[in-house]
Design a binder for these strands. Sequence first.
DNA 1: CTTATATATAAGAAATTTTTTATATATGCT
DNA 2: AGCATATATAAAAAATTTCTTATATATAAG
Lengths: 105, 105
Amino acid sequence: MNENKSREMVKILKALANPVRLKMVASLYEKPKNVYVLAKELSLPYPLAYLHLDGLKKLGLVKEIREEKKVEGLPTVKYYAPSDFKIVLTPIEIHRLFKKKEEMK
Amino acid sequence: MNENKSREMVKILKALANPVRLKMVASLYEKPKNVYVLAKELSLPYPLAYLHLDGLKKLGLVKEIREEKKVEGLPTVKYYAPSDFKIVLTPIEIHRLFKKKEEMK
DNA sequence: CTTATATATAAGAAATTTTTTATATATGCT
DNA sequence: AGCATATATAAAAAATTTCTTATATATAAG
């Protein structure tokens, strides 16, 4: 019943298998920033950038960081950076995704 | 002008970001087989299996192998196996996809 | 008080991907 | 001759993903 691992992998790969989202990760790696600035940088309408980033965030590929420049007050600006993920894709690793935990060990 | 690398990566990730195709790679890793048998194993109509495998083949993720059991005659049966690929996805690697060759070195 | 910055979300349209259905061809078995 | 095996492709339907448009809210700058 270990279809979870492969399904989770498909989700993650789907998130990264998109030119906009891939570029977002690259841009946030170079310099963490908020959605508004990211949208401008990539010449995207804000709602689209928001949706794409939200997808990455929900899968944990990108995280919110608190690096507030504005010293006082509640932070109205949210900065994002890529998480520290590492996905390795080889035939063997892909095969492992479909193996049950018991027969994995 | 190095948008080639990221575009190629998106293509490859799209190919693997699908439950059917991911399972195909896993199945062919376990034991190389032809499309007809693969279709049966995965309970897919042949044309669908054919299309999915064709996608993997065109990207070089799967290759045709000549391991003919039928000694005589031209091989009417085509066997497939995964290629020896390795794709590593980290924020750094993704960032590199968008760097020009010159500034790469 | 208007503009720029900033977030969040919904609904619909557009584009792409996935799946089905149909067609054509060929071999081997019983 | 009919059935199972086997490949290949096209066209249309179905499903999903992507993108746009609209709305609502809030702060800061000029």
